[in-house]
C-alpha cells in the first residue's frame, strides 16, 4: 500500500516536470491544445476527488468555473483590480458558493443530485447575466494582461499538480476513506460514526474552489468575456465525460481521459461545429456502455488477467 502510493507520487512529479517543458517544444496550435488539456486535467482531477469515491455526479463545474472567469473579468474591467487579486478572490467565492450548494443538496442523491446541480448552474448563469445586463451596464468585460499561452499553461499546470497532491493526501486520509464508505452506503456510513454531511460538503467545496480558480486563470486567454460564454454548461459535461473516459476510480484516471479527448474534441469542433452536442451525447453513451470503469479500469482488468494467465 505505502510504497505503491509513493511511486504514484514520484510518477506524478516526473510527469509535472516533463509537462513543464511543453511550451519550449511546441507552439501555436499545439500549445493552445496543451492549455485546453491542462485546464481539463485540473478540472477533471478535482471533480474526481469528490465524485469518484462518492458516486455523486456533479454538473455544477461550469458554474464555479464561470464565476471564476466572470469575477476576473468584472474585477479587472469594471473595478480596475489586478488579475492577481481577482485570482485570489475568485476561488474563495467559488468555494463559498460550492459550500452553499453542498448544504442545499445534502438530502439529494442519485439522479436528483445530478439534475439539481445542472439546474443550479443554469440559474447562476442567468442570475449573473441578468445582474450584468441590468446593473453593471456594459455587456462584455475586457481581461487585458501580458500573459501568453505558455504563462497560462504553467499556471494551470501548477494548479493541476496541487490538485493532484491534495487528492493524493485525501485518498490516504480518514476523510478519503469516509468518502468511499459514503459512496458504498450512506446509511452504513452514518452508523459507523461518519458525519456524512461534513465530509461531502468539505470535498464539494474543494472542487468548487479549484474550478473557480481554473476559470480565473483561463480568463485572460479570451481577452473579452461575456457571462453567457464563460458559464458554458457544455464544460460541465465535458469534465464528467473526460473523467469517466479515463476512469473515476483513480485519481490519475482523468489524465488518461483528458488528453485523447481534448484532441478529438478540437477536431470535432472544427469538422462538425454544429453537431458537437450530438457528438457529446454519443461519447457519453459509448463510455457508459463500453467503459463503465474507464480506460484505467480496462487497463487494470487486463493487467489482472495477464497476471493470472502468467
Amino acid at each position: 500500500m505505502k510504497p505503491a502510493g509513493m511511486s504514484e507520487l514520484v510518477w506524478a512529479a516526473v510527469l509535472v516536470f516533463v509537462a513543464a517543458f511543453l511550451p519550449w517544444m511546441v507552439n501555436g496550435y499545439w500549445l493552445s491544445i496543451g492549455v485546453t488539456a491542462m485546464m481539463y486535467i485540473a478540472l477533471s482531477t478535482s471533480w474526481v476527488m469528490f465524485s469518484g469515491p462518492t458516486h455523486y455526479i456533479s454538473l455544477a463545474t461550469g458554474a464555479f468555473f464561470g464565476v471564476g472567469g466572470y469575477l476576473v473579468g468584472a474585477g479587472m474591467s469594471d473595478y480596475q483590480q489586478s488579475f492577481w487579486l481577482m485570482a485570489v478572490i475568485a476561488p474563495i467565492v467559488g468555494a463559498i458558493l460550492a459550500a452553499l450548494i453542498g448544504f442545499a443538496t445534502l438530502r439529494l442523491s442519485g439522479v436528483y443530485f445530478v439534475i439539481f446541480t445542472l439546474g443550479l448552474a443554469e440559474m447562476i448563469r442567468n442570475v449573473v447575466s441578468w445582474v450584468q445586463n441590468n446593473f453593471l451596464g456594459s455587456r462584455g468585460l475586457y481581461v487585458l494582461t501580458d500573459f501568453r499561452d505558455q504563462h497560462i499553461y504553467w499556471m494551470l499546470l501548477a494548479v493541476a499538480a496541487v490538485v493532484y497532491l491534495l487528492g493524493w493526501f485525501i485518498s490516504r486520509s480518514r476523510i478519503g476513506f469516509a468518502l468511499r464508505i459514503i459512496g458504498g452506503d450512506e446509511t452504513v456510513a452514518r452508523h459507523v460514526g461518519i458525519n456524512t454531511a461534513t465530509a461531502k460538503v468539505i470535498l464539494f467545496t474543494t472542487t468548487g474552489f479549484f474550478a473557480a480558480l481554473v476559470g480565473a486563470i483561463i480568463a485572460p486567454r479570451w481577452s473579452y468575456i461575456e457571462p453567457n460564454q464563460v458559464f458554458s454548461p457544455q464544460l460541465s459535461f465535458l469534465v464528467v465525460i473526460m473523467a469517466l473516459l479515463g476512469g473515476a476510480g483513480r485519481l490519475w484516471g482523468p489524465l488518461v481521459g483528458v488528453i485523447p479527448f481534448t484532441i478529438l474534441w478540437e477536431w470535432v469542433a472544427i469538422q462538425f461545429p454544429n453537431q458537437s452536442t450530438l457528438f457529446l451525447g454519443l461519447c457519453f453513451l459509448l463510455i457508459v456502455y463500453a467503459l463503465p470503469h474507464g480506460m484505467v479500469g480496462r487497463i487494470e482488468e487486463l493487467r489482472a488477467r495477464m497476471r493470472r494467465g502468467a
Partner: peptide, 30 residues
C-alpha cells in the same frame, strides 16, 4: 454511533467496492 451504539442490519449492508478488511476497518476508524 460515537456514543457507543453499534448495529447490524436485518438485510446485510456491506460496502461493495471495499475489501473485507476495509469493510471491517470502516467500523474501527470513525
Amino acid at each position: 454511533a460515537r456514543e457507543g451504539v453499534g448495529r447490524t442490519f436485518q438485510l446485510v449492508r456491506l460496502l461493495p467496492g471495499l475489501s473485507v478488511l476495509e469493510n471491517v476497518k470502516a467500523g474501527a476508524v470513525f
